[in-house]
Simulated assay, not measured.
Amino acid sequence: MKNISFGDTPVSRCVYYRLVCGLAANIDPPGSGRIIFLAGSCGALTMPGTLGSVLRQHMQRHGVAVGPIVAHVGSNRWSFLIRPDVPDDDTRVFNDLFRLNVMIVRQGAIPLPSPTAEPGGGSRRWIELPCNTFRPSGRVVVESILACTGINRDPRSMAVHRG
């Protein structure tokens, strides 16, 4: 985003998010300055900021590529942008994540940082700025969440591929 020659505006951010990051970003509602993209080929794991910070450090220590992370300053929640490959039929994983206050975002709008102030004083900022289209596997991020919180799982419960 630092190399955008036509200024840092909601429109220029959307162009960056689309062309460089592969995120179909839009200003919604039009004219508001609020930037979103719809989950689909990219999803998110949203969690309390304290867990997000521990998870990020755990992933970095174990050589797991982190990918883009958005913080919502007002609610102290972090969203890890992921490939949406977390199984939706594993109730044990869902229950573990629920107890940790982690949400899997598979559908709907995912807000992104915008250079303009958001209504209500909320603001989003990048913890890990996207610089390309890379997103870590949601399965790998979930396994990292379980590992860094000490939740022991049967290794057969969710096959993890670090690709």
Rank of each mutant, 00 (worst) to 15 (best):
R162S: 12
G108A: 01
G122C: 08
L97I: 01
E143M: 08
V160R: 07
H62L: 07
C148W: 09
M59Q: 05
W78N: 06
L146G: 07
M1F: 04
S41N: 15
S79V: 03
V93N: 00
L38G: 03
P29S: 01
G63K: 13
R156G: 02
L55A: 06
V160C: 09
S123V: 11
V142F: 10
T133P: 02
F37L: 09
L51P: 01
V105W: 00
L45M: 13
V15H: 11
L45T: 02
L38H: 11
V15F: 12
S32K: 07
I4W: 07
V142Q: 10
E128P: 02
A71I: 00
V140H: 08
E143R: 15
S79F: 00
R56N: 09
N26Q: 10
Y17W: 00
V64Q: 14
S12L: 05
M59G: 02
F94E: 10
A39D: 12
W126P: 08
G63A: 12
R56F: 10
Q57S: 13
Y16A: 02
G52E: 02
R99S: 09
H72T: 15
V141T: 08
L38D: 07
E118Y: 10
L81R: 02
Y16V: 06
R56S: 13
V141C: 09
G120W: 04
S144K: 13
V66T: 14
S5T: 15
S41I: 10
A24E: 11
P119R: 02
P48N: 08
L38T: 14
M1P: 12
A147Q: 14
C21S: 10
R124F: 12
D8W: 05
N132G: 13
R153A: 07
P115S: 02
L97K: 00
I104Q: 13
G40W: 01
S144R: 15
L129A: 12
G31L: 05
H72L: 14
L112G: 01
R106L: 09
T149N: 01
C131F: 14
P111G: 03
D154R: 11
A147K: 15
I82C: 11
M103F: 01
S114R: 01
R92N: 12
R125D: 04
V11S: 10
W78P: 03
F37N: 04
A71E: 09
V102S: 02
P48C: 00
P136W: 03
T50Q: 00
E143L: 14
I151T: 12
G121M: 07
G163N: 14
P87T: 01
L100T: 01
I35E: 01
V70P: 05
R18D: 07
T149K: 03
D88P: 01
V86T: 08
G49E: 10
F98T: 03
C21I: 05
D28R: 10
G163C: 07
P87A: 03
